[in-house]
Design a binder for these strands. Structure first.
Lengths: 216, 216
DNA sequence: CTTTGTGAAATCCTTCACAGCG
DNA sequence: CGCTGTGAAGGATTTCACAAAG
């Protein structure tokens, strides 16, 4: 669907544009300009246009981009057709919050299985799903054709769980554990590291009263 | 403390190195090589060395870097001395999980105030802290000298809350709400967007069976 | 012999600026 | 006139490769 290979930096912004497009659609707008998408996403309009130039959908000069067409194409490029089953491993505080997080379902991701190692949790229900035993990871993941996993285990368990997930066909991992995961090259890992983010914030906060940073 | 301005990309990796250093310290290692830090963080060793070259601490050829000195300097550069008070706004599923998240305290951040708009939540206690009324944001934040805020409100409330936070002196915001925040240039925002991350994963997963991506 | 520190090269990404279309 | 599409320029970041130090 894209005309040419889509750069990583562009891929990372497509979800932002999608959000802007959905807002525009809800407001009944038939088209949006690169400027509007830009302010909604916090990027420059030139960057938006460059990004969209990797797609097939083209805008109309003087008017902007068709909200419907762009939404459809970005969804297709991101592979958001149909429902994607998802397993969450590690049902602690964070895992529990993720189970009931509605941002998943709103974009076509369906939480299909929950796994935890704690026997007191196994068998209990949360958000309509039964927590299953981590020992059964292989059968659970394989049976339900899950290829996307959300890792919310403690750091020390993460690599082992990741290895097992990859072993039964998972190729995409969203890692909340504060540790680096070593995976084969056909597997994609994205990490969400709250503690790192805070430390980065801390840097810029202190830099703003003392001039140390390059950028922001 | 840094020799020259530290690039953004480097700043974003310093927390990873810090993690590797703490692990090394726990293992009793007096020094680490750039190679070890690299595999622990998922970057290349050349990149580690280039990053560390912006700091004052220098390694020893044939040996590596002193775990103690590097830890100290990275902590200092990131502004991690002393305890940093932090307010969490929006105590839903995610906010609740964040309150009890121990990754904050482990790096010197202290959750000092919780705010929510729901009268049924206000006055209740969670993790030893009383949830206070969002209406009192200004006094709560100002009285406690909070300059770092974690935003876990619904998207539609986020910009308004951010404006108010900035108005009373907050200069660093960690935004979990799926929306772009418009803030003055002296304020730093980092966002954590679970839904976007999943969509990015989805792209690479589908790309791996069809060749569309540039990178990974 | 191991590992750092770093210029130089290569790659990737963003911004500029403007021609051209509707 | 408004807004897209894009070459060209400019930055930023990463990788290479190797001299030098312990």
């Amino acid at each position: 669907m894209p005309k040419r290979p889509v750069p990583d930096a562009t891929v990372a912004r497509l979800p932002l544009y999608l959000r802007g497009l959905i807002t525009a659609a809800e407001a009944g707008r038939p088209t949006v300009s690169s400027d509007e998408l830009a302010t909604a996403s916090g990027v420059t309009s030139a960057n938006v246009r460059k990004d969209l130039s990797f797609l097939e959908t083209t805008g109309t000069r003087g008017i902007g981009y068709s909200v419907g067409s762009l939404t459809d194409e970005i969804s297709a490029v991101l592979g958001l057709a149909g429902e994607r089953p998802l397993v969450i491993v590690g049902i602690g505080n964070l895992g529990r919050a993720l189970v009931t997080y509605d941002g998943f379902s709103r974009r076509g991701f369906v939480v299909t299985a929950l796994l935890d190692v704690d026997p007191r949790k196994v068998g209990t229900t949360i958000g309509g799903l039964v927590i299953e035993d981590l020992a059964d990871l292989e059968t659970v993941v394989a049976d339900r054709d899950v290829t996307i996993a959300v890792l919310a285990t403690p750091a020390h368990a993460a690599q082992d769980v990741a290895d097992r997930l990859v072993g039964v066909g998972v190729t995409a991992v969203l890692n909340f554990a504060p540790t680096h995961l070593d995976v084969p090259s056909h597997v994609t890992v994205r990490k969400v590291d709250v503690s790192s983010e805070l430390q980065i914030l801390s840097f810029y906060e202190q830099a703003s009263k003392g001039r140390l940073a390059t950028g922001a």
